[in-house]
Design a protein around this nucleic acid. Structure first.
Lengths: 200, 200
DNA sequence: GGGAATATTCCC
DNA sequence: GGGAATATTCCC
């Protein structure tokens, strides 16, 4: 148990909180600019309004990367939940506007103990051994069904996240392209950052 | 066992090797400047001649930090030995000038796996949960769980379909917009079929 | 969304 | 020099 843990919140949490406060202040004084990220209305969570700008402009100032998915990985590690289907809103019981002191109570998830021992979970990394073949043989049909459902569930969540990320990319591109069309220049070039690979 | 591990060396090793080769090349063509880091005479190790410049100028170009001690921590992790008392010289059996292929054989030191699963080890981070208090749930409880899983599964499939449809729309729009950009007309109108609602 | 490998930091 | 926590990446 490190001394740091008992006193101060994990750097990830402080930084995320700082970043929201900074944006709030910037909005208060500067106004005008479009919102990139902010506390939600109730102050019990936050919304990343523009993942592209958030990743490019804010992440590198607080973290050692500019990957939205790495940021999300951290949120999950600390137990945040995505709480809206159509926007990037995240909540955690202890993550509230005005309650910086609660951050110190938030805990990183460890690999949590599963009801099913790991050798029963299907995985490419655990080729069947003599041991778990015979154990699996004793599993009831409903247990097998249950595990299959769990696997499919996991897969679906994964796929959803991937699709959502793709959509975020599209939205960004879309805006850039519309920008180009609404401010025409004599010679047109393609905007530089179009991930053409999404087009087929 | 990840696919990466069998084929290519750890990023840390490639980057350290690259950095030495880059310096060697720079010295060959440019000459003049004082040496910051280089292979040793025998080519079976390397020397950081100027840790300050090395940290400020080279580390950030290859890694996500500029701390000499983090670099050394990595060297130790991969089994390098400090081989001189008065200068920062490091050697590893498989790290030799001209032998990039040997890097793939170098292995990170592991913290050796414990015989006990992590959830059996005493830890402040694992307060007993409903799950692990009664692994053998009652028939009704597991039935409820099962139904919940099925429901969530159905919801996820629905969501996935929706997201995929959105993406299909985006792809179509994308092509239309690119079309517009590549055949400019004197007066620009927005193409008619852009679902603006996707943009916020 | 999360497991697991690697990277970085912190601390002894 | 290395154990261990946290951060970042990669992959399912």
């Amino acid at each position: 148990m490190s001394c740091r843990k008992s006193k101060c919140p994990a750097p990830f949490l402080s930084k995320t909180y700082d970043l929201l406060e900074e944006e709030r202040e910037a909005e208060r004084v500067g106004g005008g600019k479009k919102k990139i990220v902010s506390w939600n209305l109730e102050g019990n969570g936050f919304v990343v309004w523009c993942p592209a700008d958030f990743s490019d402009l804010m992440l590198p100032r607080y973290f050692k990367h500019n990957n939205f998915s790495s940021f999300i990985r951290q949120l999950n590690t600390y137990g945040f939940k995505k709480t809206a289907s159509k926007r990037w809103e995240f909540q955690h019981e202890k993550f509230r506007r005005g309650c910086r002191h609660l951050l110190a109570e938030m805990r990183r998830k460890k690999c949590q103990p599963s009801a099913f021992p790991s050798y029963l979970k299907p995985s490419a990394h655990h080729p069947p051994t003599q041991d778990n073949k015979s154990i699996a043989a004793t599993a009831t049909a409903s247990e097998v069904l249950f595990m299959e459902l769990m696997e499919e569930n996991k897969k679906l969540r994964r796929e959803r996240l991937e699709l959502e990320l793709q959509i975020a990319h599209f939205k960004t591109m879309e805006m850039k392209l519309l920008e180009c069309l609404s401010h025409p220049t004599p010679t047109h070039h393609y905007p530089p950052s179009i991930p053409i690979n999404y087009l087929n």
